[in-house]
Design a binder for these strands. Structure first.
Lengths: 251, 251
DNA sequence: CGTAACTTTGATTAGTATCAAAAATGGTGG
DNA sequence: CCACCATTTTTGATACTAATCAAAGTTACG
């Protein structure tokens, strides 16, 4: 079973998305999440399979991807500790993409059916989970823009900015400095570029003095310039808690 | 008020996503949707504004887009009659993108707050709406792949296949023949290409005998070859009703 | 400490963009 | 109903971004 800290983390995260009362919180605590360790590159969800489990990422990174008929991979999102890994497929007949561990991960797992029942029995909890999936969607949309309409240097700058803020939100980065959890090949798969070109762009960003790199550690030296170059606006991340949901409930 | 046909269309569409009982259906019918006509190019949602209304598209087409700092537009999705237009923003503090009418549209509108209350009071209705947003997400993900990892001819072939099936599902096309609701410039904004290149690719698809065009009318002459060229697999559209939701409820 | 994975560099090519302009189409007001 | 103007589609010539191919360094790790 998930230790109390893991449990409370879930409760706290969901409570950010809309007020939950004690019965809601107890229902989450009673779910019986089971902890598992997932090895790097192991699949958590496989395209074409019906969704059976739903997991919360406690530590490590995971990513969502598809492979084209030509064998090229496109990563559609990267998940950080504290995020649900597969609320996206939970109500669909089959998963339409893969979810794979990027690094070694600790996850808390429950059956997908349990989550579906929880959402129906506790509407406020269901709404909080729904909002989690809507924020995933907002990030998907921004990635469509990134990959569709920005040039290589902007795409990578944008990704570096997004990671900085999301990692800071997860408590894994400070002062625009973090450990990049991906290889350059994986960055290429996020941005629709080739690994060779990603390397050249990263070097160029270093040469321009916008970032510094030391192995996988990235420091964004000139945040404002990088943000401008990457056409990065935080709006789509919906980092501030409390949207209209909270307003409505405060009436 | 929305005439009974519009109302029943909503009820039927949501009931496809998970069983609804009579109380659920009556709650939807009681919402008091108001019909409106929206002129082509009018905004239904504007980036940065808090979501206030939620609309169901009764006729016509609408699209979701963002504009980059460089002024380039990226379309993230196109909506067809029968689809909800802005469940995506309804629980978020501000809209992170625009929704605009592509053609003249008839919509049924209610306040966003009403929808939020409905979802909380009637969990099965909430779940059905949640599933609608999850299917939108599945399409967003496929578009990331399309724009990130397919070449121009595959991207456009993929888009043509997607439209054929979605329009057929909406009852607006038959035999892989339909009226394309977009200009070539808008197709370019969906696929991350330039209008000039879109034109050349469409001509090429014609020359290859895969499609025929007559003004905006498109006929897919060789479905299997176009589908193969576009690396198109219907899975992500989740067109078959009844996923695990229905299985669970059938227990 | 050897080997596989990852990063870096160089040379060349391919695929789309860009720029420019003509042809076709569609709507609108006189 | 026709003439006109704006929008859309089409074509051609050229430029440029990022891909490809190849291979040398570098790092991580069993």
């Amino acid at each position: 079973m998930t230790p109390p800290e893991g449990m409370e983390r879930i409760v706290r995260r969901l409570a950010l998305r809309g007020p939950l009362d004690e019965a809601d919180k107890d229902a989450i605590r009673a779910l019986g999440f089971v902890n598992r360790t997932i090895e790097p590159a192991a699949y958590l969800v496989r395209e074409g399979e019906p969704p059976t489990i739903c997991t919360l990422l406690l530590s490590g990174f995971a990513y969502r991807h598809k492979v084209t008929g030509e064998g090229e991979r496109q990563i559609m999102s990267v998940h950080m500790p504290g995020e649900f890994l597969d609320l996206q497929n939970i109500f669909l007949e089959v998963a339409d993409h893969n979810v794979q561990a990027l690094t070694r991960c600790e996850v808390a797992a429950v059956s997908a059916a349990t989550i579906r029942e929880l959402a129906e029995a506790y509407p406020r909890v269901g709404r909080a989970m729904w909002i989690e999936t809507l924020i995933d969607s907002a990030i998907f949309r921004e990635w469509i823009v990134n990959v569709g309409r920005r040039d290589s240097i902007s795409r990578i700058s944008h990704l570096l900015c997004e990671f900085a803020l999301r990692l800071e939100a997860a408590g894994l980065a400070r002062d625009h400095r973090y450990e990049m959890p991906m290889t350059q090949e994986q960055i290429a798969d996020c941005t629709g570029l080739t690994p060779v070109h990603v390397n050249r762009v990263l070097k160029e960003l270093g040469r321009m003095g916008l970032i510094e790199r030391e192995k996988r550690a990235v420091t964004i030296v000139q945040w404002d310039r990088l943000r401008h170059l990457g056409d990065f606006n935080t709006r789509y991340l919906h980092l501030e808690e409390g949207g209209p949901t909270n307003i409505a409930s405060a009436r």
